[in-house]
Amino acid sequence: MTVQITDRPDGVAMVLKPLAEKTVSQGYCVRSWTGITAEITDLHGPGRGPEDLRSKRPRLTAILEQVGGHAEMRLTPPCQARSRAEIGYGAANHLSFIPADMPFWQFAQRFRYIRRLIIDFDLPVLAACLGDEIEVTSRFAPRVMFRDSRILMLAELLADACLGTHADSRSYGDSLALAICYNLFRPGRKDEKRSGLAPAQLRRVTAFMEQSLPNAVALKDLAEMTGLCESYFSRAFKASTGMAPHRWYLAAKVQRSQKLLLETGDSLADVALASGFADQSHFTRAFRTIAGVSPGAWRRNHGI
């Protein structure tokens, strides 16, 4: 098996290597910051068998971007694929934290593209840098497929910093690394209470919302499915998913459009209409809000 390594001028190692039989290609970049080692990975489907992601150090895994299918994280290797409704959520923007040396598996199927960030933590270095501001212990409890909008935002920025070539990217990356550590390990975090939807409620609601795409379901109808009032349902949904229901719909429509951008040669106007947007202008604004770039730029960046 051949592995191709390209050295960049800024010292960042870029690696492209063949993967498991079901996966077409992968590219990744590894970089070290204060107290962490970060690995940003681009996976191209259509599938990937159980992948053991255990580490000698505490590890945070973030699924930052995903087109099609789902990526499931588990403490035991999955015996067989499960539907998105059974998993609870199949889209991106979920995190998993695993203590050192604990078995940890990723299973992904029917996807076109996944962008994944893995962070390994050097606890002695972090303790020296942050002192009493964080709880450093070897007895962490695992947290699988959880959502935290603040950590996800920092993880997105760190992933971009991993690929950065600016002279000041070192200090910028160090700041992001310490911010992630503070938000993940700060004292009292485990006692914070967020009242979200029950897992069964979340599975039922998100499955119904997905089946209704590209049309939205009235907030009143979603709340009635869970037996909650509209205002409480909105807060609980956001606590469970990291986004309000209307934002979830927007992200889901953009994800639907990304699949069309990759799989078809349709014009942006046709993709916009097929994804449930009023016109190309509305589509472009929404796409930029969720993905950070225009649909045309995103399509070019992904080789279409």
Rank of each mutant, 00 (worst) to 15 (best):
N215V: 09
T241V: 13
R189Q: 13
G227A: 00
L250F: 05
R203K: 07
F208D: 15
S231F: 09
R235T: 01
A216P: 14
E192G: 10
K193F: 15
R256V: 13
M209V: 03
T206L: 01
L261C: 03
L250C: 09
D266V: 04
A236T: 08
H246I: 08
A274I: 07
K190Y: 14
G265D: 12
L219R: 08
E210C: 07
K190R: 15
R189V: 13
Q255K: 05
S231I: 06
T264F: 15
S240R: 02
A218M: 08
L262G: 03
C229G: 14
Q255W: 12
F237K: 00
L202G: 09
S212E: 15
R203S: 07
A252Y: 09
G188H: 03
C229A: 13
R256C: 11
L268S: 04
S231G: 10
A252T: 10
W248S: 04
S257C: 08
L273Q: 12
L261N: 02
E210Y: 06
G242V: 06
F233N: 00
L219P: 15
V271K: 01
T226F: 12
R204A: 10
D270Q: 03
G265H: 08
G227S: 08
Q211P: 00
S212T: 14
S275V: 09
D266H: 06
R203I: 13
R203H: 08
P199M: 05
M243A: 04
R204G: 13
K220V: 11
D221I: 09
R256N: 08
A272K: 02
C229Q: 15
T206M: 04
R203L: 08
S195C: 10
Q211E: 15
E263S: 03
Q211N: 11
K253R: 03
L219Y: 12
A200D: 13
T226Q: 00
A239H: 01
D266P: 00
G196F: 12
G242Q: 03
P245C: 04
E263T: 04
Q258F: 10
A223I: 04
L202W: 03
D191H: 05
K259D: 13
Y249Q: 02
A198V: 06
A218H: 11
